[in-house]
Lab assay of single mutants.
Amino acid sequence: LTVEVTLDGRRIELHGLSEEAHEILRHALERNADDKEIKKILEELRK
Rank of each mutant, 00 (worst) to 15 (best):
E20H: 12
R26G: 05
E30S: 07
V5D: 03
A28F: 06
V3S: 05
L29W: 04
A33T: 05
L25Y: 00
H15Y: 06
K40A: 13
A33G: 04
R10Q: 15
N32R: 10
V5Y: 00
E4V: 15
E4H: 06
R10M: 15
E37K: 04
R31L: 11
E13F: 05
A21N: 06
L25S: 00
G9I: 01
D8I: 01
R26T: 14
K40S: 12
T2N: 07
G16D: 12
G9R: 00
V5T: 02
E19Q: 13
K47S: 13
H27W: 01
E20C: 06
T2V: 11
E44R: 11
R31K: 10
V3R: 03
H15W: 07
E13C: 08
E30L: 09
K39R: 13
G9W: 00
L7Y: 00
V5M: 03
G16W: 11
K47G: 12
R11Y: 09
L29G: 03
V3I: 15
N32Q: 12
E19A: 10
L17N: 01
V5L: 07
N32H: 12
E4C: 13
E43A: 12
D34N: 11
A28Y: 05
K36S: 14
L45D: 02
E13Q: 11
K47E: 13
K36D: 14
E44N: 13
R10P: 03
I38W: 04
L14C: 05
R26S: 12
E30I: 07
R10A: 14
T6Q: 11
L14I: 15
L42E: 01
G9V: 02
E23N: 12
V3Q: 05
L17M: 07
A28R: 00
G9Y: 00
R26H: 08
K39P: 01
E37R: 03
E19P: 12
E37P: 01
H27M: 10
R26P: 00
R31D: 08
A21T: 06
D8K: 02
H27S: 15
L25M: 04
T6M: 13
D35G: 09
E23I: 07
D35N: 08
E23W: 03
S18M: 04
I38R: 01
K40R: 14
V5G: 03
D8P: 04
H22S: 13
A33V: 08
H22G: 10
V5S: 02
H27C: 08
R10L: 15
E44M: 14
I24L: 14
D8M: 00
L17C: 09
R11W: 08
K39N: 08
S18I: 02
R46T: 14
N32P: 04
E19K: 12
D8Q: 06
K39G: 09
L1W: 03
N32Y: 11
L14F: 06
E30P: 00
R11N: 08
G16L: 06
L29D: 03
H22L: 14
D35H: 08
H22P: 01
K40C: 07
G9F: 00
I24G: 05
G16K: 04
E43T: 08
V3P: 04
S18E: 04
N32C: 11
A28W: 06
K40V: 10
E30Q: 11
L45P: 00
I41F: 04
A33Q: 04
R31E: 09
E19M: 12
E20R: 10
L25I: 15
K47H: 13
S18Y: 03
L17F: 07
I24S: 09
N32A: 13
L25F: 02
R10Y: 08
L7N: 03
G9N: 04
G16T: 05
A33F: 08
L42R: 00
L17Q: 01
A21P: 01
K36Q: 13
T2R: 08
G16F: 09
H27N: 15
E30G: 07
V3H: 05
A21Q: 14
L45R: 01
L7F: 01
L25P: 02
A33P: 07
E4W: 02
A33Y: 08
L29Y: 03
R26E: 09
D35F: 07
V3A: 08
I38M: 12
E43R: 10
E44I: 12
L7S: 05
D34M: 07
K40D: 11
I41W: 02
L1P: 06
H22D: 08
A28P: 00
R10S: 11
D8T: 01
L7I: 15
L45Q: 04
H22W: 15
D8E: 12
E43F: 02
E23L: 10
G9K: 03
L14P: 01
R46M: 15
A28G: 01
I24R: 15
R10E: 15
S18D: 10
K40G: 10
E37M: 08
E4N: 05
R46Q: 14
R46E: 13
V5N: 03
T6C: 15
E37Q: 07
L25K: 00
H15N: 09
L7D: 03
R26D: 05
I38V: 07
L42C: 04
D34V: 06
V5I: 15
L45K: 01
